[in-house]
Simulated scan of single mutants.
Amino acid sequence: MFLGTHHPRLDDKGRLTLPAKYRDALAGGLMVTKGQDHCLYVFPRAEFEQMARKVAEAPFTNEAVRAYQRYLFSGTDEQRPDGQGRVLIAPELRRYAGLTKECVVIGAINRLEIWDAQAWQRYMDEHEQRYAETREEVFPGLF
């Protein structure tokens, strides 16, 4: 399970050092893809393959399904962390997420998300109140 917030830097070659606590879970390979809200999703390879099978089962005769499949799979890059836990973030993915040197990596249960640090702060500022307001609506009686 991926949890927490980390603040790695993107180096001049476009590499990002993954948090050490996640490296074992990602050692077998990982998939970096465009996420929603202009962040990047990082899935362990096995998790991505499981998700890909479900996406592939959707009827490709549906225009929305084809568009989703094209967008998801064309924007995915397979990586294997190097000995220092770094992965290369492809230029297209860096542009999509607006990544600069300062990044934020958050755990999101089954995936990591990579955000530009300023974009993450804006997102948190915009959504903090909504988080507080919708907790009971989304999970009635849980808290």
Rank of each mutant, 00 (worst) to 15 (best):
L99R: 11
L99P: 04
Q129P: 07
E57S: 15
E126C: 00
P91Q: 07
A52H: 07
R15H: 00
K101A: 14
W120L: 05
I109L: 03
Q129G: 02
S74N: 14
Y41T: 02
P44T: 06
A46C: 06
A27P: 00
A52M: 04
M124I: 09
K34L: 11
H6R: 03
R94G: 10
R66E: 07
G141N: 14
L16E: 01
R111P: 04
F139W: 14
E102R: 15
G35A: 07
R80L: 15
E49V: 11
I114Q: 06
M1L: 01
W120E: 11
F73G: 10
S74A: 12
L142V: 12
R111Q: 11
I109T: 03
R130P: 03
A20R: 11
G83L: 11
K101H: 10
F143G: 06
E49G: 06
G83I: 07
H38W: 03
N110L: 00
R95S: 13
L30C: 09
C39E: 05
Y96N: 09
D125H: 09
G4R: 10
D37L: 14
A25R: 05
H6N: 04
C39H: 07
V138N: 09
V105M: 02
D125T: 09
E49D: 15
P19I: 00
E133R: 13
Q69V: 11
R45W: 00
V32A: 01
A27Y: 02
F48R: 03
R45Y: 00
E47H: 00
A20I: 06
K101D: 15
E49K: 05
L18M: 07
Q79D: 09
I89D: 09
R45H: 09
C103Y: 04
G14H: 02
E133K: 10
H38C: 13
A67H: 08
V42A: 08
G107D: 05
L16C: 09
D24E: 15
G28S: 08
V138P: 05
T134P: 01
R23T: 06
Y68M: 15
I114L: 15
M1R: 11
K54F: 07
F73S: 03
Y68C: 12
D77W: 04
A67P: 01
N62D: 15
A58Q: 15
T134F: 14
L142P: 00
C103T: 15
Q129D: 13
M51Y: 10
Y71K: 14
L30P: 02
A67N: 12
Q69P: 00
F48D: 03
F143K: 08
Q118M: 11
A56N: 13
A58H: 05
K34W: 04
R9C: 12
I114N: 04
A132R: 10
Q84I: 05
P81M: 14
W115M: 10
G85Y: 00
I109C: 12
F48P: 01
A27N: 02
A46L: 10
R15W: 06
T100E: 14
A90D: 13
H7L: 02
R95I: 11
T17I: 06
E113H: 10
P81G: 09
T17D: 01
F43I: 08
Q79C: 12
I114H: 03
